[in-house]
Design a protein around this nucleic acid. Structure first.
Lengths: 253, 253
DNA sequence: CCTTGACTGCTTGTCAGACAAGTATACCGT
DNA sequence: ACGGTATACTTGTCTGACAAGCAGTCAAGG
């Protein structure tokens, strides 16, 4: 039975607008998940079992499960299989990115605002990272820098872009602040499509990619040298410079 | 008929794992929404009509609608009514905030990291705002500051908290960068519960609230004076000071 | 003319039951 | 012990049904 204890009708003349059962069930399950009662990786019982546990029909359970999957708290939903959905948190970030992308594409947020935010955030993250860079993140960044070089010589813009995104994420991850990594991950994912458009529309790809690689090297060098100030300014110049030169391609004015 | 044209099986030996129809339908509808074919405020057709348009059964349509509601792209879902869900973007931010809150409560992000992020972000936003503060935002901030004073004298911690949150949002909104407002809104919503706990646990509420009001006044003054540097440093001190003194209450270590 | 009331649809929320396709498991023969 | 089959179970989807609420419509009565 779903507890319907919520919302005591404070104003007696307003009819009690209870939420649909499916939403109530999803909230209860959500609470079980985020409160840790159902640890990450737990496989949920079958829909029939949930039917009995919550005292509602399978349709209702299924709607609740869809809600939780959309919120990123349950795996699955992307493929049809008999595998039971698992409690997961990987898709939560993806869900947040999806939300941000929706706001973006609905035209509520100009790209320039988003870029300004990214400059501030990434600058701060790198400044923080420079004080004590994680060695494995630095190593990963170096690998991705190599990948960028190869992609540039091969003229593979898409591969370059992938490595580029990875590089920035790795650099931000070199600091140990999870919040930076999270928000910047979302930001990047939302901006990525614009960026790829801009790269694809380049008149002289080789020259631009070469310059970008140089700027990446400078950023990496500054962080390795522990010079947070320089890292911040260089990443700022790197991002703003690119958007000033090639940012108009994507379309968002 | 839902177009199943996506994902041409590139590797013929991997069985084509198509996504459930409900997910496909939700993606199509999502695309219609974010691409602007269905403008904000549009009321969706009835479920039966959608049934015919997409060539799937009502159960499938309903699951798709639940997904879109969870993503914040459709209104409704919180109350049961015959009103058709409307295309909306207000709930998208809420959805992002929900995702962030989930990550937080799952223990993936320490509160200190989040606070550090907020300091950087809010500092940058206020520095930006100081260069050209929106007068109506400033007026709103002043009203909320008054509300804080009244709440403090009345000893109403909850009201103080509400006004506090509103003040910070108004100040950030004084700059015209939508991205700052968006992300900080999400951040605040995620932090809010910790903050309220901390306020409720104060040993000497009156003194602390008084000090907070003073700090808020200083921040407002700096922005009005156009001194971005001072605004950034003051809001930084304001946030870090509070969390250093009272931040342990919420529980997240 | 305006209000009131009943009636008729239509919509959502929920349930029960059915079936296909795929998978896991148990069981059985070698 | 091992391989292969049969069975049970799971998810995805459809169909049909019913209660409750809301929007009209339309006639009766003031």
């Amino acid at each position: 039975m779903v507890s319907t204890s919520a919302s005591p009708s404070l104003s007696p003349f307003e009819p009690v607008r209870r939420a649909p059962l499916s939403v109530l069930v999803s909230r209860q399950m959500r609470e079980l998940i985020v409160s840790g009662v159902l640890p990450l990786g737990t496989a949920l019982p079958s829909e029939k079992a949930l039917t009995e546990q919550f005292g509602v029909s399978r349709s209702t359970i299924r709607e609740a499960l869809r809600i939780l999957q959309a919120q990123g708290l349950l795996s699955g939903g992307d493929t049809v299989s008999t595998a039971r959905p698992q409690v997961s948190d990987r898709h939560v970030v993806e869900s947040a990115a999806l939300a941000l992308e929706a706001v973006l594409r609905l035209g509520q947020v100009p790209l320039t605002d988003l870029v300004a935010l990214r400059v501030v955030l990434e600058g701060a993250a790198l400044e923080h990272a420079a004080s004590d860079p994680g060695p494995e993140a630095i190593a990963e960044a170096r690998v991705l820098l190599d990948a960028m070089r190869h992609a540039a010589t091969a003229g593979d813009v898409a591969a370059f872009h992938t490595a580029d995104v990875g590089f920035h994420i790795a650099m931000v991850g070199a600091g140990d602040n999870v919040a930076y990594r999270l928000v910047l991950g979302v930001l990047r994912e939302a901006i990525a499509v614009h960026l790829l458009d801009a790269l694809a529309d380049l008149a002289e790809p080789a020259a631009v990619l070469g310059q970008l690689i140089g700027e990446h090297e400078a950023v990496l060098g500054a962080v390795e040298a522990g010079d947070g100030h320089a890292a911040r300014h260089q990443v700022r110049a790197h991002i703003l410079g690119f958007y000033a030169a090639h940012g108009q391609a994507g379309g968002t004015p």
